[in-house]
Design a protein around this nucleic acid. Structure first.
Lengths: 218, 218, 218, 218
DNA sequence: TATGAATGAGAGTTCATTCAT
DNA sequence: GATGAATGAACTCTCATTCAT
C-alpha cells in the first residue's frame, strides 16, 4: 500500500517534470532560448511559477536540461546510423540525409541547437553537442579513409564543414526560397548531401529506403 | 566667437561617434548583440549614457549601425574579389580564403554576423548581409558552370553550404583544437577551402600571393 | 492544498489594489497627475514597483483608473439628485450645494478633475467627466426653462459657467481666505449657490436638510 | 563712442532676452508649461541652450518670467477698465467682455494662466495673478454695492465665481461646441456676461463700442 | 508540496544643467 | 559672452526569483 502510494507520487512528480520540460521545449522551438520566460513556461505546463523551482534550481538549469534532451535525441539517432555495418560511404550519406531532413522539419529548433545562442549559460551544452555531432561525422570519415573509400583529408575539419553547411543551407534567408523548401524538401536535401559528400571526396549513393522511415519530427 | 575651429570640433564629434561604435562593436564581439547594454557601451566609450542618444536615436539604431559597418566591410572585400577577371575557380578559391582567414581572426564577430540572431530588430540587416554574401558565392559558381569550369549543380544551395561551412568550421568548439587554429591557421583554412571547392566539384588551386596581403582583422 | 482560503486571498488582493489606488489618489491630490511617479506610489502603498504592474498595465492605466473612480463618485451623486422629482429650482440648489460642499473638502482633487490637465492621456477621461458634469447642470436648467421656473437662457453655457464658477471660487488662492473657508464653509457655499442661481435667473431656496447628510469627503 | 558701444551691447542683450521669452511664451501657448523644454526654447530663440542660463538662472525662473509677463498684460488691461469713471455696472460688463473675448482667442494661454498647473513652481505666480484678477472684479462689485447699483452680496466670492465661470465656459470640452465658439464667439461671450452679471444681481448693459476695439490677441 | 503574489535590481531612455572651447 | 556637446540622475517598465500561505 505504502509502496504503491509512493509509486503513484513518484509518477506524478515525473509527470510534472515532463510537463515543464515539454512546455519549455515548445517555447524554445517557438522563439529560441532568449524568448523563454519562466512565467510562460509555468502557464503552459499548468503549474505555478514557484513549482518550477522545485524541479529545477534556476532558469539556466531548466534550459540546459531542455537543450540536453533535444540534442540527445538527435545525437542518438545519428550515432546509431554511424555505428552500423554498412560501408562508410553509405553511412555518411544516411547520416547526412537524416540530419538534413530532420532539420528541415524542425528548422527553428535546429537553429537553436546549432546556431550560437546569445545565452552564455548554454555554451557548455552546445559545445558538447557540436563536438559529439562533429565526432560522429569525423568517425565515419576516418573509417572511410582507413578503408580507402575516401581520399585522405583532415576528417575533423571536413566534419566541421559538414556540420555547418547543412543547417546554414536550410535555415534562414540564406536558404533557397522557402517555397522550394516546403514544396520539394527532398530535392534540396539531396543537393546538400551531394555537396557535402563531394567535399569529402566521394559521390553520393542513391537514396536508400531506410531514410524515409525515420520519424522526422525534431 | 565660439567654435570657430569647426574642423577640430567636427573631428572630436567624429571621434566620439567612432568611440561609441567601437565600444559597441567590441561588446558585440564579446557577447553578441543580445548581451549589449547601453550603460556598458557608454562606460567603454568613455561617455555618459545620455551621450549615446545624441549620436543614435535608440539602442536598436546603434546596433544596426554596428552591424552595417562590420558587414559592409566584409561584403565589399568579397565583392571586389568576385568581380575580378580571373577564372571562376581562382576567384572562388580567393574568396573562400579571404572569407575564412578573416573569420579566423574575428571569430566571435563572424559568428554574430552569420548565425541567426535572437534580436528581431536586426533580422532585416542580417537578411541583407546573408543574401548578399550568398549571392557573391553563387555568382562565381554560376560563372564557373557557364564556362564549364564547374560541373552543373544548384549554385544557390552550394553557396549556402559554403557560407555555413566556413564559419562553423572555424568558430566554437566544433572547430579543431584552438591551438591548431592559432598556431597554423593557414593549414586549417586550406583544408576548408579544399572541402568547399571539392563540394562545388573542382580542386583548389595553389594559394596565390595576393590573399596573404589583405588585412585580416575583422 | 494551497490557497484554499480563496476568500482571504481575494480580499488581500483587493486590499492591495485599494492601497495602490489610494496611494495614487493621494499623490494626485497633492501634486496633480503630472507629479505622480510609480516609485512613489509603490512606496506609499507599501509594495514594490513591480507589484503595481500586476494590477495595472501601465502608469497611464493606473491614472485613468484613479480618475474614473474619483469622478464616478461625483457624477453619480449629482446625477441622483438631478433625476429627482422636486422642482428644477430645488434640484439645482441641491446639486450646487452638494457639488460645492464636496469640493470644499477635496479642493486639490476637485481641481485635478475639473481643470484642464497637461496629461494628454487623461484628456479622454476628463472630457467625459466634464461633459457629463455639464449635462447634469444643463438638464436641470432645461427642465426649469420648460416648466417656466427659469427664464429662457442658453442652458449649456450657463451650465458651463456654473461648472467653472464653483471650483474656482473654492480652490486655490482666488478663494476667500482659507480660514474663512475652514471656519464657515457653509456660508461660503451659500454665497456661491446664490451667485450661480442668480446667474441662471432664479433665487436660491432655503437649504434643505438633505444636503447636510451627504458624505462630503471627495 | 564707448557709451554708444555699451548701448548697442545692452540693446543686443535685451533683444536676446526678448527672443528667449518670446520663444518660451510660444511654446507655453502650444503645449502648456509642462511641455516646455529648454532645448526647444533655445532652438526657437536662435541661441544655444547654455545661453538661456546667462539670462535666467533656471527653467523655473524663465517660466515664472513668462507667466509674469503674460499675466501682467491681462491684468493691466482689466485694471485700466476697472479704474474708469463709468458706472460700476458698465465697467463690470466691459471688464467681463474684455476678459471673455480675449480668452476666446488665446484659449490655450488663458488656460495656462487660469487653470492650476502641475508645476508647483509657478503656484506663487498664479496665486498673485488670480488674486489680482479677482480683486479687480471685486473692486468693481464693491463700488457698485456702495453706490446702490448692485444688491449687497459678498463681493469677493462673487468675483471668484466670475473668475472661474468665464474661462471654464470657454475652454475645453465643457465649452459649447467649438464651431459655435469659432463661428459666433460674440454670442457666446454675451451669454457668459449675462450669466455673470445676473449672478452679481444686475442686468448686462448693451455692448459699448469700446470693447470691440481692444486688441484681442492674448 | 504547490501556489502565485510580491519582489527589486536593472534595463532603455529623457532632459535640465554644466563647462571646455 | 556665446556655444552646444556632454552629463547623469531619474523616469517607466520587466522578469527571474522568493516565500507566506
Amino acid at each position: 500500500m505504502a509502496y504503491r502510494q509512493t509509486d503513484k507520487v513518484a509518477a506524478r512528480l515525473a509527470d510534472t517534470r515532463r510537463s515543464i520540460l515539454d512546455a519549455a521545449r515548445m517555447l524554445v522551438a517557438d522563439g529560441g532560448f532568449a524568448a523563454v520566460q519562466m512565467t510562460e513556461i509555468a502557464k503552459r505546463a499548468g503549474v505555478a511559477t514557484g513549482t518550477l523551482y522545485r524541479y529545477f534550481s534556476s532558469k539556466e538549469e531548466l534550459c540546459r536540461q531542455v537543450f540536453r534532451e533535444v540534442s540527445a535525441r538527435e545525437m542518438d539517432m545519428l550515432a546509431t546510423i554511424a555505428s552500423g555495418n554498412e560501408p562508410a560511404r553509405e553511412r555518411l550519406a544516411e547520416v547526412l540525409r537524416t540530419f538534413a531532413s530532420r532539420a528541415v522539419r524542425g528548422r527553428r529548433l535546429a537553429y537553436v541547437l546549432l546556431a550560437e545562442p546569445v545565452d552564455v549559460n548554454l555554451a557548455e551544452e552546445r559545445a558538447f553537442f557540436r563536438r559529439t555531432h562533429a565526432e560522429i561525422f569525423a568517425g565515419i570519415l576516418e573509417d572511410g579513409i582507413e578503408t580507402g573509400e575516401f581520399p585522405k583529408t583532415n576528417a575533423r575539419i571536413a566534419a566541421a564543414c559538414i556540420a555547418g553547411a547543412i543547417p546554414t543551407a536550410l535555415i534562414g534567408p540564406l536558404a533557397p526560397e522557402s517555397h522550394e523548401l516546403d514544396s520539394a524538401p527532398e530535392r534540396v536535401v539531396e543537393e546538400i548531401v551531394s555537396f557535402c559528400m563531394a567535399g569529402a571526396g566521394v559521390t553520393a549513393p542513391r537514396k536508400s529506403n531506410q531514410t524515409k522511415e525515420r520519424r522526422a519530427s525534431l
